[in-house]
């Protein structure tokens, strides 16, 4: 069997608690990042992503505390992103138990940060997150949680961050995000074919079939999803069962 495709639940965290309405049957503390991360781990998640959606300097400390508490119970990789501005931010996040750190706005503002982190910590823990929005001629990079256009072409930027030392790209389609009608397959495939690092597709997942499509037609190495898991619509195990049935290699967890 080749390297398996990864299924990655994403938790939006704000002030150390999970937001974006997570509703789990039989789970009262749904706002607690470690509780949810462990729940997904038990379902067979291959990795977990924490995204600090309203990152502030004060919030960083709270987030690190949540990461530390999670890392004590999580025996699968944990990626943390949102509000990571400096080399020191990355170092501290890894120190408290993150395995990878995702950089977005800061990478656009200061591309050398990618190289600096890759040299010190290794490329494998430097994830560059790219928020992409369709334009007349392709896709444009957006920063500051998607609020500011960066006047950069997504495909070119993806190529550049790899040359700078990124070990992975977390690619979010802003057009599809929250719509639940499927990932942007064109965008994903374009970036996958352009770069030599793994690509995590994000934005638009509303059904099991969307995940099947982005990992097959979209050629992504991993699929990130949030709401489909949060409301107990589907477990990670359901996703994997479907992928196995479609002949897509996954880590099977019974």
């Amino acid at each position: 069997m080749p390297l398996t495709k990864r299924i990655i639940p994403c938790l939006d965290v704000k002030g150390g608690v999970v937001v974006k309405g997570v509703r789990f049957k039989g789970l009262t503390d749904v706002g607690d990042p470690p509780t949810l991360a462990v729940r997904y781990q038990e379902q067979g998640a291959d990795e977990i992503v924490f995204l600090d959606v309203n990152a502030s300097v004060a919030g960083a400390e709270t987030l690190r505390a949540a990461v530390q508490k999670t890392a004590e119970q999580l025996f699968i990789p944990l990626t943390v992103g949102g509000g990571v501005r400096t080399f020191e931010d990355v170092r501290r996040m890894l120190r408290v138990g993150a395995d990878k750190v995702s950089i977005n706005t800061a990478a656009v503002a200061k591309p050398s940060l990618i190289t600096e982190c890759a040299n010190a910590f290794g490329s494998q823990c430097v994830v560059v997150a790219i928020d992409a929005k369709r334009s007349d001629d392709g896709w444009k990079v957006h920063t500051h949680s998607g609020t500011q256009p960066a006047q950069r072409d997504v495909v070119e930027w993806a190529r550049e961050v790899c040359e700078l030392g990124a070990g992975e790209i977390l690619l979010t389609s802003m057009d599809c995000d929250g719509v639940k009608e499927g990932y942007d397959l064109d965008l994903t495939r374009r970036v996958v074919r352009e770069v030599g690092v793994p690509v995590i597709a994000s934005g638009g997942c509303g059904s099991l079939d969307h995940i099947v499509k982005v990992l097959s037609d979209g050629e992504a190495d991993a699929a990130l999803a949030a709401s489909i898991f949060h409301f107990d619509e589907h477990t990670v195990r359901d996703v994997k069962k479907e992928l196995v049935a479609k002949g897509i290699p996954v880590r099977w967890c019974g």
Partner: peptide, 11 residues
């Protein structure tokens, strides 16, 4: 390998 790092779960 075509895609490096080797990232994920393998046999």
């Amino acid at each position: 390998a075509p895609r490096v790092p080797h990232m994920g779960w393998n046999n």
